[in-house]
């Protein structure tokens, strides 16, 4: 084992892992994080903390990770390339490791035009694949970026993750794209929310054909739907989301007050289906502002209790 990550340990022991997500608040109140953390503690193996998701300013991901850590949760620190250059990123990686963070998720980040500061200048000094290589270099080679490749005194032992969207276009290079991330040093992947299980299975097949599942743990992303409206919105307005019409019809087919329940059923069924797909090593349940439902979903999917 390279790190003290809980999910690295569980994956190495051959467990099917479960992760979830926690979005920091639009303010400085740590209680918001503590409340969300309490709903997830013991329910999942690690919790992602998003980094100014959809480009809306929120409490920093690293700060919220530390608050979760204090509760005894193993946080997965999400980092986007949108807001920091290679100087800030290397510095934050060292800082995160010093604060006891064990997992990092390397992302490009949503474009600033979607957020509350669309007039901001984006950075994109490096991209997500290159970010993976930066962490790996610091951790495994103990070297900083730069001509001199100076030595890192105290290597940051972070378990290195990234995201992949099996439903983004062009579909034909999506497995290849994962291959680049793996080559750069990625050790686990959390996918975009899966609604089209068939297409996901097709992507997984290509991933396995390339042998990528052996080099990197694939955690299948599941986003429970709260309503038919949410499903339609995701289909229409979230680029790169694949929500089949029959799923929307299924939600529409039940009374509005029961749609949330139906959404949870769909999430549970999705987890059970993806669990059977060769190469899938875990699930990532993203209950957006619905953290209280994660325990129910994980239990119904037969994934409770979590291994020690």
């Amino acid at each position: 084992m390279k790190t003290k990550s809980n999910i690295e340990r569980l994956l190495e022991a051959g467990n099917f892992v479960v992760t979830s997500e926690c979005g920091p608040p639009r303010g400085s109140d740590p209680e918001v994080i503590r409340k969300k953390g309490a709903l997830l503690k013991g329910v999942v193996d690690a919790v992602n903390v998003t980094d100014n998701q959809t480009s809306i300013v929120r409490m920093s991901s690293l700060s919220a990770c530390v608050i979760l850590k204090e509760l005894g949760i193993d946080p997965i620190w999400q980092v986007v390339c949108r807001d920091r250059n290679r100087i800030a990123i290397q510095s934050d990686i060292l800082g995160a490791a010093a604060l006891g963070i064990n997992n990092m998720l390397c992302l490009s980040g949503d474009h600033q035009s979607f957020g509350d500061n669309p007039k901001a200048k984006n950075v994109y000094d490096i991209d997500s694949t290159q970010l993976i290589s930066v962490v790996k270099k610091l951790r495994d080679e103990g070297k900083f970026l730069g001509e001199k490749e100076e030595e890192v005194k105290g290597r940051p032992n972070l378990f290195i993750g990234a995201a992949e969207n099996p439903f983004g276009d062009p579909f034909e290079i999506r497995a290849m794209r994962l291959g680049k991330k793996v080559k750069a040093g990625c050790e686990f992947i959390q996918t975009q929310g899966i609604y089209n299980v068939e297409k996901f299975a097709q992507w997984m097949k290509e991933v396995c054909d390339r042998g990528l599942d052996k080099q990197c743990a694939i955690l299948a992303g599941v986003i429970p739907l709260k309503s038919a409206g949410m499903a339609s919105y995701m289909k229409k307005s979230v680029p790169g989301m694949d929500v089949p019409d029959e799923l929307i019809a299924r939600l529409k087919g039940v009374p509005k007050e029961q749609q949330g329940e139906e959404g949870i059923k769909i999430a549970v069924e999705t987890i059970q289906k993806v669990k059977e797909i060769p190469g899938v090593r875990g699930v990532h349940v993203m209950a957006i502002e619905w953290e209280e439902k994660v325990a129910e979903i994980v239990k119904a999917a037969g994934l409770s209790p979590r291994p020690e």
Binding site: D110, D169, P170, I173
Partner: peptide
């Protein structure tokens, strides 16, 4: 996003997530 190693997750049907009238550069490259 000036990405160097492929499209972001928002590339859909050849279009950039930022603007429906803009081609996804990585779709064009592929």
């Amino acid at each position: 996003k000036s990405l160097f190693n492929g499209p972001c997750g928002g590339s859909a049907k050849g279009v950039c997530e930022v603007d429906k009238d803009t081609d996804c550069a990585w779709q064009l490259i592929v």
